[in-house]
Design a protein around this nucleic acid. Structure first.
Lengths: 230, 230
DNA sequence: GTCTATACAGTGATAGAC
DNA sequence: GTCTATCACTGTATAGAC
């Protein structure tokens, strides 16, 4: 059983890289279930069995792809977070925190990034145990740091409220990343969230309002009816 | 070729009903790709070929399932919309409009509703042409009516702004419906959007704030920096 | 260690007998 | 209308070549 364990190696192998690269664009375009390992391996120029030798299974390919692609996103996030501006009292500027969280996620600028953005969104809605684990592995730590940063930016916002609003934020983010085309249809093309720069700007503005709502601080309180108990 | 066209019949056939019913719970639980027609037909107690006879394809089953299940949701939405309270000036109450839109969508109370909620969310993130068409068919008209109602509730909000905020609303709604379990993890169980009554209440409150933000009306304007051009 | 050919059980779809 | 038999194709497994 322990004769050889080639699963987790340094990414030196060309075969591994070719498989991952092909998977990145193909999974995002047609969905994980929508692309067969035959098509994938043909496009990658490798043998079918190489997939199982290197990654164990189709899902193994997905996991490795996620581990690789999420890394630069998370790093970029943390870099932006470290540069966040601060108020006189030391609290981070809410807009900057949101920007640091959303910009790397929405960015689909170069290379295969656009593919991964779509793929990630698609997976974020899955309920499978495996998918859930893959996503957690890649993004939990970073997400927690940002929830803490949001809490620091809005110290008077109860944690429970923050959780809910963060949930809605992720929802809007994921839906924007998925680019389902729905709002394009409904707005007759006037509104296009796939223009990520515009989407980013809107999201930061809108959700800064969301996180500020209902707290009595330097910004005036939201006075409308607030139902207290859940 | 035109000897018989059994595709679009009255839903009298027991076989059809049994297939749809099985598909509803199984698709939602394991995803469309996660359940084979063999399993499905065994559970439905019908022959494998009956699926293709009645619905043409697996996707045909999905389309029919959507057409059936979306109907009560849309009807309920419009019923609630017709009862929306109004201000002195005749404008609909924003919270009531949001409630009318979200309540039927999030409601997972009885029977197979919960399954359909998950299924719908999952499909809302797909990018496939077929899926997109199925969703449009079922929900476009109702969604447009609600966008108009929102515009009526917030007459001073530019349509472009409304489009974006509606897009974010759908994102948060869909993500809540999907119940990916992500915020439960991140909040260590404190926050649970699968409790649909609580989620509904929060969403209505939060997004009422979203749609009101930045408009100078009976509610005070949001004065913070507003970047104008896209 | 790395890669390949080949085989296997399970998939959606279909043709044709009844 | 319904069912059996069968098709081409899927992910996976393994024996064995370099």
């Amino acid at each position: 059983m322990r004769t050889s364990k080639p699963r987790e190696n340094a990414p030196g192998s060309l075969t591994r890289d070719r498989i991952i690269e092909a998977a990145n664009v193909m999974f995002a375009e047609h969905g994980v279930e929508g692309v067969s390992l035959r098509e994938l391996t043909v496009r990658a120029g490798v043998n079918l069995a190489a997939v199982h030798y290197h990654f164990g299974s189709k899902e193994g390919v997905l996991a490795e792809l996620f581990a690789r692609s999420s890394k630069p996103i998370v790093e970029w996030r943390l870099e932006l977070l470290s540069k966040v501006r601060r108020h006189r009292d030391g609290c981070p500027v809410l807009e900057d925190v949101l920007d640091a969280f959303l910009r790397p996620a929405l960015h689909a600028g170069r290379r295969q990034n656009a593919s991964f953005v779509h793929l990630r969104a698609r997976l974020a809605l899955e309920r499978g145990e495996a998918t859930r684990r893959i996503l957690s592995e890649s993004f939990d730590e970073s997400s927690r740091q940002f929830m803490d940063a949001l809490a620091a930016a809005m110290p008077d916002l109860p944690r429970e409220e923050l959780n809910w609003r963060f949930h809605f934020l992720i929802g809007a983010m994921v839906y924007t990343m998925a680019d389902s085309g729905r709002i394009q249809t409904l707005s007759d093309g006037t509104c296009d969230p796939s223009a990520s720069e515009a989407a980013l700007e809107r999201m930061v503005a809108v959700f800064a309002g969301v996180f500020r709502a209902g707290v009595s601080g330097k910004v005036r309180a939201n006075v409308r009816r607030r139902s207290r108990q859940v």
